[in-house]
């Protein structure tokens, strides 16, 4: 069975109804403004393990929700 995401408005729904969105984190150590823009636009953390991400319920309530997921096991934590 595919992953199920619990939407606060629509209840538990299959992942196919959602689209993925990463929450960008530009590192504090990056000070150059242009470099920060490039990082914000393109660079990704791509972490292995637990991470907080945003999902958009495109075929449901059309609202964003935050989700904690383990990318190593591909399992939803909360």
């Amino acid at each position: 069975m595919s992953l199920q995401i619990t939407c606060p408005h629509c209840g538990t729904r299959p992942i196919e109804e959602f689209t993925y969105g990463e929450i960008p984190h530009v590192p504090e150590t990056l000070t150059d403004l242009d470099a920060r823009d490039v990082d914000r636009a393109f660079m990704l953390a791509n972490p292995e393990g637990e991470t907080t991400e945003a999902w958009f319920h495109v075929y449901g309530c059309r609202r964003w929700l935050k989700l904690k997921r383990d990318t190593k096991l591909d399992r939803i934590v909360e």
């Binding site: 992942i15 993925y20 292995e48 997921r69 990318t71 190593k72």
Partner: peptide, 10 residues
């Protein structure tokens, strides 16, 4: 659709 390092297929 979801980024993941898991190599399980379903």
């Amino acid at each position: 659709r979801q980024p993941s390092y898991n190599r399980r297929s379903g």
